[in-house]
Design a protein around this nucleic acid. Sequence first.
RNA 1: GGCGACGUGGUGAAGUGGCUUAACACGGAGGUCUGCAAAACCUCUACUCACCGGUUCGAAUCCGGUCGUCGCCUCCA
Length: 469
Amino acid sequence: MTLRLHDTLSGETRPFTPIEPGHARIYSCGPTVYGPAHIGNFRSFLFADVLVRYLRFRGMRVTWVMNFTDIDDRIIQRANEAGESIEALTERWIAQFTADAAALRMTTPDVLPRATRHIDEIASLIGALEAGGHAYRTDDGSIYFRIASWPTYGRLARLDPAQMRVGERVEADDYGKDDVRDFALWKGPRPNEPTWDTSIGPGRPGWHIECSAMSMRHLGETFDIHTGGVDLIFPHHEDEIAQSEAATGRDFVRTWLHCAHLRLGGEKMARRVGNIARVADLLAAGVSPRALRYVLISVHYRQAVDYTDSSLAAASAAVDRLDSLVTALETYRESAGNSDPSLPEVLAAGRQKFEAALDDDLNISAALAALFDLVRDLNRRIDARTLSTTDARSGLDLLRDVDRVLALLPDAPAELDRQASGLLAARKVARDERDWVRSDALRDELLARGIAVEDSRDGQRWRRVDGAR
RNA sequence: GGCGACGUGGUGAAGUGGCUUAACACGGAGGUCUGCAAAACCUCUACUCACCGGUUCGAAUCCGGUCGUCGCCUCCA
């Protein structure tokens, strides 16, 4: 089986074959660092994360690039309002993003380019567009891309440029464009705005051009996969295609992948709507980061997801179920037992189902179903005591293996602090003496410390539980 | 106005022509195990896939229509 992916441009789901055999080059549109990313943004980043993880799981080398947009209108506005430098502002929000991403176990991209560090590449790209007759200058020193010069403009979004509604408001700075639908490649210098002196003159980059410049700089003129939220299809990605292909004369991206929206209250989560939830706030409120990750990745990426309290609670319970199994397998001891003869087959079949599901355009719901089928099967065998200690280890190994893609399992066996392990030891003594009152009191005390203790045939087993769920 | 996606149980969601009288997760009811608890396991929890009509030996799955929801056409993940 090979991985099949749904390409937005062609509308087809087709086998993924990287340009360089065994090496996938992926670009993901990253955050504009003018404020905190919300969990809707993170849905699209985590979708790319799962893709990258899965390709690596399948043995492929992956170069993953995710940019930071660290110069744009909103950033300038925020910095001016706060009387803060743009650098200080963007550094702060990059740090916040990095922390949020880490909490959600997002793989760190191989390259995290910033627009302000690719001004030369941007300028030379715009220069090439000018030379090719695809761009023109206006009186204020801005440079625009001429949509009329690109016949296939609108193909990605399936929009007919002639039918496009033109926004009612025409901003003052857009004055002088040949066509209102033309988009800015370069913005001429203005008071209270940063300016770079470049080969194409002074000014600052427009939004779309940075992604073309950075992706091509780090991945080549044609690369394998470009990801983003569906709201980036138009105009952002449409513009990227036009300007990149017009500049190089080559196909820009082989496969376009777009993630559907996260909704809250029935609407797309968006700052404008005001229905946003931030990672840091949720974590501060006691939400388990792994449960949050589960909510964000557990539905197919092209399907809109509603974020609700009950979806979070359900995710939390599902993650707990995984945790319980991990703990049970880790503590399982059956010295007398022989190996369970049917186990290897069950594990192999489970893994195969998991892979087959993800191969089908990253059908993660089906992959999770395969995982949970395996969870039930392993729990049964634990209950029935048919496993050997080694078998339990094999089961655990498989869970850890598929978790390279999911990143939902608890971290490798955590150490208990001295006090907690003391309490646990004391409880064992109490239990050996059948002192139930003391045993129960110690259990309560451990729970108050966030450690749930359960008694099993393998003795006491414990796992960490998060406070509020 | 143009374009597109979607509508499956109490909830989320997979399935897109026969293997499904519909996975998996959450929730609910009952039971087993256990000093208790928790976890786990077992049984049950949609004769049905928005609605109407059609194609077919056969449809949740294909076609047409109706209703509804959401998204894009403007900054947006």
